[in-house]
Structure formats: structure tokens, C-alpha cells
Amino acid sequence: MASAPTTITVTPLEEKVAVVEQKIHNSQYALKFVGAAISNMASSAFCNPTDIIKVRQQLRTHAPGARGSSFLSVGVEMARTEGILSLTGGISASMLRELVYSGIRMGTYEYFKDTLHDVSQGALTREGLTLKIAAASIAATIGSALANPADLVKVRMQAYYPNGNPYRNLPHAFASIYQDGAQKAITAGASPIYGGLRALYRGVEATTIRGIVLSATQICSYDQIKQSMKKRGIMKEGVPLHFVASTFAGFFCSVTSNPVDVVKVRLMNDKTHQYKGAFDCIRQIMVNEGPFGFFKGFGMCWARLGTHTILTFLIFERVRYLFGIEAM
């Protein structure tokens, strides 16, 4: 009995090439996440002293311009009363936060940018700000929400405690905040698990809003400035262009994010529940401290965020080059 003829299916070369290119493209997204995490963690480690001074300034509730509220005064006071190592406070929580938050918000920015461009079938152009802002907002929302517990722990570890910092290390801080929330939930007749998680996610609204505002101005302005300067032939791809674009981006995001940052820090460190929520916090700051209350710590915010932005993008672009990925 004759055997049935064997059918051989040959995949067209173009399809094979497309599959390989897609795999390479997907692996680049993973490398971009790694590069974003590395660059932001390195920048945060360098800028931690300015970050903790900024937090201390933002937690001070006295009138603007009062003595002892300048970033220099706060820094000198910390070094004198708590020791120079106090300027490294919360660095472990900061590293964890950057790994999750910045790894996602910056590392997935181009993924969402490509996806939205494809879904819109080109209606959202790569040259336009709409695509950039939408991609940055989505990435920042996810990163901010997931990283909120680490962000809250960082703020708590960096706050001032007259009787000494109650948190021995990062795990102890997480456990203490969770247990405190669980205990309060039990007292109120609620679920301890929900109470513990709620304690770690206090201020998540302000955190997410800040993440969106920061990313929409920092990442998008860097991307747009680079794109515009190259298109007009003002500068070519390279370190000088990365430095100029990141300098402008650092200033823009400092201005837009500082008010939200003040509200976020106040809410996260509000252990006595002075504020009913983000809007109540905004109201109290406006009534008690005036509009300039939202810009407390701006000098240190700019010093920290501006330096952080420049270092981050310079390192990020260099890591991309080492990974064999084209510049952002």
C-alpha cells in the first residue's frame, strides 16, 4: 500500500526575519528596564543627601521664610545633631523604590510609546507630544502604584525623630508600618491584612499623580528636546546633547512636581492622621502656609531632581550604548 505523500511547509524568509526581529525588539525592552533601574539607582545613591534634606524641609509646617528652614540650615543641623551619616538615611528604601518605580516608568516608556503608535495606526505620531505624554503617563501610573510602599518607607526612614529613628533597617520599617496599620484595623473592627496594606499604600493618590506629572515633564521634555535639536541640526547625538536636554528636563520636572511632592511627603509621614486625604492636605497647606507652602524645599528639590535627571539620562544613554541599544 503506497504511503501518503509527505507535505513540507516552508516558512517564507520574510516571516522568519520578522519573528527574529520581534524577539530582538522584545529583549531590548527588558534591557531598557534594566538600564533604567541601574541609572536611576546610581543617581539616587549620589543624590540621597539632597533628597533627605528636601524631605525634612517639606515636613516643616511653620510659615515660609522662618529661620532654620533653608536647605543649608537643615543640612548643617542634621550633620551637627544626628551625625554626617544621617544624610544617608533611607538609602536602602530609595534603592528599592528606584528599582520598581523608575525601572518601570522609564524602562517601559518606549514600550508603551511603540504600542500606542501601533494601536493608533500612526495617528499618534512619534514627533508629537500627545504620544509621549500618554506613554509616560501609563508607565508612571503603573510604576508609582507598585512602588508606593517603598516610597512611603523611604519617607518614614528619612523623617526626623527627636528620640531616635524607630526603624532599624528596611525590613523592620516595612514590618512596623504594616503591623501598626493592622493593629489599628483590629481596633476599628476591620481586617488586619487590609489595614496593613492600607498603611503601606497611604498617599498612593499623591504618589501616582506626582509620578505622572514628573514623568510627563521629565521624560517627555528630554525626548522632545533631543528630537527637536537633532531635527534642526543644532546638535548631534552624543553626550553634549544628552547633557543639554537633561538639564532642561531637570528644571521643568522640578517646577511641576514640587507641589505634589510636598503633599505626598506630608501624607506619607502623617502617622496621627492630621489630613483626611490629599485634598484636605492641600486645603490645610493653603490656609496655614499659603501658596508658597507647596514650594517648600524647591531649592533642594531642584538641586536633587535636576542633578538626578542629568546623571540618570547620561548613565541611561551610556548603558544603552553598552547593551547595543540605540539612543533614546
Rank of each mutant, 00 (worst) to 15 (best):
K276E: 15
E15I: 14
Q179T: 14
V244M: 03
E127N: 12
E237K: 04
V287R: 15
K23I: 15
E15A: 12
L99W: 06
A182T: 04
Y194T: 14
V17F: 09
G128C: 05
R198E: 11
A45M: 15
V155L: 05
A159F: 10
I193M: 08
E14M: 12
G324T: 01
T130F: 14
P171H: 09
Q224S: 09
I38V: 12
V100S: 09
S144A: 14
T130P: 04
R318M: 14
F46R: 01
F46E: 07
K236R: 12
R168E: 08
F313A: 02
G293P: 02
P171E: 04
F292S: 01
S191T: 02
L170C: 06
R210D: 12
T7H: 05
A79G: 08
Q22P: 02
K184I: 00
A190I: 00
Y29G: 08
G89R: 03
V263Y: 07
T130C: 04
V76W: 08
Y167I: 05
G75V: 12
F323Q: 11
S176I: 00
C253F: 12
K296R: 09
K226Q: 13
A4Y: 10
F251D: 07
M41K: 11
A136D: 04
T88D: 02
V319S: 11
T141V: 00
T9W: 00
Y161V: 07
N169V: 02
S228T: 15
Q58A: 06
D118F: 11
G211H: 08
K154T: 11
L214D: 03
A2F: 09
K132T: 05
L152K: 13
Y109G: 12
V263H: 08
Q22W: 11
Q218K: 14
G89I: 03
Y201P: 09
G324P: 05
A145K: 10
T9Q: 08
Q284R: 09
S27I: 13
T141Y: 10
N165E: 06
E237Q: 12
Y111F: 11
M300K: 07
L146Y: 08
G75R: 11
A63R: 14
P291A: 07
E326H: 10
A150T: 08
Q57A: 03
D51S: 15
Y109R: 01
A173L: 09
S228L: 15
G238K: 07
M286S: 15
N40L: 10
C253V: 10
Y160T: 15
I234R: 10
K32P: 01
R320H: 13
Q274R: 11
E289I: 10
R56E: 01
